[in-house]
């Protein structure tokens, strides 16, 4: 096999990588928005409960979550396809991080925005939907893009629960012939090709939002 053939062979796993990413987003985005807003709006016990759920998904090691759900769910008689378990775990983990960006984005808004909207007589849900979230969205954007990259890279994990993604294909190819340099360089490149455009886009967004400051050049 030439390096090009190896690269193409690895990309046979792209469908699984892409599917897990897409399904993962279906979990991540709603979770981030709902739980981020909920954490922002609630107080006391409700906030504690919401924080606990977020912290469970965010602070657990995602690789261990995957193994736990993959092996524990059948024990309590929940039979789910591996791809669903993987998308849920990866998605909710990314969503946990995303929710913190949502909350932080909302909290960072000038209090005057809320007060001005409330003074106009807008109901709370309209203030949130029309005034607060649109402004917070730009501040969340870099974290969201970052989490998308983390999600794509995280899908490499599904190779450990027997799904035929790009990483799994690389290992298959490595078993059939001895060319570690070709195989694993191609594997790195395969993910690079997918994630790099997102990385560059994310940096562009960040610069548009953040602006540039003078650098200290003495180092």
């Amino acid at each position: 096999m030439t390096t090009v053939e190896i690269f193409v062979g690895i990309f046979e796993g792209f469908r699984v990588t892409a599917t897990v990413t897409a399904l993962g987003l279906l979990y991540a985005v709603p979770f981030a928005l709902v739980f981020g807003v909920a954490q922002y709006l609630t107080k006391g016990m409700a906030r504690l409960a919401i924080t606990a759920v977020i912290e469970f998904w965010r602070s657990s090691a995602v690789i261990i979550l995957l193994f736990v759900f993959y092996y524990v769910l059948p024990v309590i008689d929940i039979q789910l396809p591996a791809i669903t378990v993987a998308a849920m775990v990866l998605g909710l983990n990314a969503g946990g991080y995303g929710s913190q960006a949502v909350r932080a984005g909302l909290q960072s808004l000038d209090r005057g925005q809320f007060e001005a909207a409330a003074a106009l007589g807008l109901p709370r849900r309209h203030i949130l939907a029309l005034i607060e979230l649109p402004q917070a969205l730009t501040r969340m954007a870099p974290t969201f893009i970052n989490q998308l990259i983390q999600l794509i890279k995280g899908t490499a994990l599904v190779s450990l629960v027997t799904l035929t993604d790009m990483t799994f294909r690389a290992k298959e190819i490595a078993e059939s012939e001895y060319n570690p340099v070709g195989v694993y360089t191609s594997l790195l490149l395969a993910y690079f090709v997918i994630c790099y455009p997102v990385t560059v886009f994310g940096r562009w967004v960040e610069q548009r939002i953040g602006g540039r400051k003078g650098l200290t050049n003495e180092f």
Partner: peptide, 12 residues
């Protein structure tokens, strides 16, 4: 580095 998974690096 940021565009590639940690698992791919470990295998590499």
């Amino acid at each position: 580095i940021r565009s590639t998974p940690v698992l791919a690096w470990l295998y590499f």
